[in-house]
């Protein structure tokens, strides 16, 4: 949140107004969440939702502001994860150079961001459904490549025994530190996207989304703007990938397969793509459903229930949960007018 330093123009706005009371309330509640949550809810639901939310946020950044729906964001996260496994420590007996985390994490993030930018370059000439197709192709190809390449990605079993770092006397994979670690990264990513969307660059990207031809005529380098958006999205997805590999303690092709790629899109669609909070909302709903649907309907039909539930959300509100909120809000406001003193 601190990234939102007040600018000098509208001097009347206080910091509070600038950040938004809603954001502060949500942040405080999330910070207090460990006080009431069990370890399982802290990591398997809380931290996992934040990680998936970040990966989806990188998709939302591209799709919501740039109009580029990339299904390869999970591959970008996977590249970061594999980089951590290869340069850090693992117990699979392949690579594992044992470099310290403060070198490995920036490298992993940069490699992921670079890969994301490359995907941006490749898919640049496409639009709409063709972007989805080409990025899906990239995600699928990368999945099969990791599954069959043993010299670099160690094939089907992938890498195991990857541990989160321990410093300042804290094991960062313990439930509470890990939750706060994820929360910290997620908040920074969220604030950065929110701030970026109002910056000159963010507005330019949105203008490119709305009318690339006019922007080109005005002298903007449309290609460069899009590729840079992919780079930024890659940083967010890369950081999430690092957290994901620490969270699982392992990475294998199963982490980045096609259904995982689609999952990221589902999360973004369920949550809504208009505002960066959407992907996080979607992630919470999807993680809760995928974890507990099996308890509701049993092992045979739980995927059907998940599918139906998502269908209902999209059917009721094409803009996802955010759209639902957008529709309820005016009613609430009116009601408060009526009952107010």
């Amino acid at each position: 949140m601190t990234a939102l330093a007040p600018t000098d123009k509208p001097a009347a706005q206080s910091i509070l107004e600038k950040i938004g009371a809603g954001n502060i309330v949500v942040l405080v509640l999330l910070a207090l969440y460990p006080a009431v949550a069990s370890d399982f809810f802290l990591t398997q639901i809380g931290a996992y939702s934040l990680i998936l939310g970040m990966i989806s946020l990188s998709l939302m950044l591209l799709a919501g502001y740039g109009g580029m729906v990339s299904l390869a964001q999970i591959s970008v996260a996977g590249i970061a994860g594999y980089t951590v496994a290869i340069f850090g420590l693992n117990n699979s007996g392949v690579h594992g150079f044992g470099w310290p985390f403060w070198i490995v994490v920036p490298i992993a993030t940069l490699v992921a961001a670079g890969a994301s930018a490359l995907i941006g370059v490749i898919s640049n000439r496409t639009e709409g459904i063709y972007t989805i197709m080409i990025t899906l192709a990239i995600a699928t190809a990368f999945f099969y490549f990791t599954q069959q390449n043993y010299s670099l990605f160690n094939g089907f079993p992938g890498y195991t025994g990857i541990r989160a770092p321990e410093f300042w006397g804290v094991n960062w994979r313990d439930p509470m530190p890990f939750y706060y670690l994820c929360l910290g990264f997620a908040v920074v990513a969220y604030a950065a996207v929110l701030y970026g969307s109002r910056s000159t660059y963010g507005l330019t990207v949105q203008a490119v989304r709305d009318n690339p031809r006019r922007m080109r005529a005005l002298g903007f380098n449309v290609t460069a703007h899009k590729v840079v958006a992919y780079f930024y999205a890659g940083i967010i997805a890369g950081l999430a990938g690092v957290l994901l590999v620490w969270f699982n303690g392992r990475i294998s092709p199963g982490t980045i397969n096609v259904s995982a790629a689609i999952n990221v899109l589902i999360i973004a669609v369920i949550g809504g793509m208009r505002h960066p909070i959407g992907p996080f909302l979607g992630a919470v709903v999807v993680v809760l459903m995928q974890t507990f649907a099996i308890d509701i309907v049993g092992a045979e039909r739980f995927n059907t229930l998940i599918g139906l539930f998502f269908l209902v959300i999209v059917f009721v509100s094409p803009d996802g949960l955010l759209g639902l909120w957008g529709r309820i809000k005016p009613h609430l406001a009116q009601e408060s007018l009526r009952s107010g003193p």
Binding site: T160, N248, R250, S252, P253, G254, T255, S259, I294, F302
Partner: peptide, 14 residues
């Protein structure tokens, strides 16, 4: 109490 995986090691551990 049933748990479901999809044959990938990650899903089994989850």
């Amino acid at each position: 109490v049933k748990g479901s995986s999809d044959a990938s090691p990650d899903s089994a551990v989850r």
